[in-house]
């Protein structure tokens, strides 16, 4: 009888001790982690375009944190999906075409002599990248434009174009070397993408 009692006591005291230790550790070594929403938000491209069906990047980040699919961001494209998959430790899925397709980066351009100064695009711009006043010509601050194209629809005179970002000497990039013969199938017709997809990381 006493043996059972001793055992129970010992176990209880152990439980108490470890409980205290764990509790202490939880308080003492509390990690002030970056909330997951912030981390997700950091990965999103911040175009605030709403193509995901949320009114901005942060709401989408919150939605992802609550279990929404990660493949609804066309401006971010596959690389964003991969980064998100990496962060959330989930499978990277292809971009959901329903929300649009990944396209080349563009900026808005206002054909200024056609602008009537209605300020509708200014109100639509999520990042305040359009400059102008009522009945004055508007213009886009190119360096601030995220290319979300939210300003195109409201324009009553259709004077906003989305132009691809021009390649200049400053933003020109070296292309990746063409994959060597090591990667190309004997039947080259079988698309290079296939080969490059198959190409794994080195051992």
């Amino acid at each position: 009888m006493s043996a059972v009692l001793i055992a129970i006591l010992v176990l209880l005291s152990l439980a108490v001790v470890f409980g205290l230790v764990l509790g202490f550790a939880a308080v003492k070594f509390k990690v002030e982690g970056n909330p997951i929403v912030d981390q997700i938000d950091d990965l999103l491209p911040q175009t605030q375009c709403g193509q995901c069906g949320h009114p901005g990047c942060r709401p989408y980040a919150e939605a992802i944190a609550n279990g929404e699919q990660i493949n609804k961001c066309p401006p971010g494209g596959q690389s964003t999906i991969e980064a998100l998959a990496d962060l959330l430790d989930v499978e990277a899925v292809p971009l959901d075409a329903e929300h649009g397709e990944e396209s080349i980066k563009t900026v808005a351009y206002i054909r200024e002599d056609e602008c009537i100064g209605c300020t509708k695009c200014i109100q639509a711009c999520p990042v305040d990248a359009i400059l102008g006043a009522a009945k004055q010509m508007h213009t886009v601050i190119v360096s601030e434009c995220t290319g979300c194209d939210l300003c195109v629809e409201p324009c009553p005179v259709d004077c906003i174009d989305m132009l691809p970002i021009e390649t200049t000497l400053n933003n020109w990039k070296w292309t990746p070397p063409v994959p060597g013969i090591e990667l190309i199938a004997t039947d080259t017709g079988r698309t290079i993408t296939h080969a490059s997809n198959k190409e794994g990381t080195p051992s």
Partner: peptide
């Protein structure tokens, strides 16, 4: 890109 998106975020939040 990261810088730009940070800036866009800031501007968006300010707005």
């Amino acid at each position: 890109e990261q810088r730009k998106s940070d800036q866009a975020r800031q501007r968006f939040e300010a707005r």
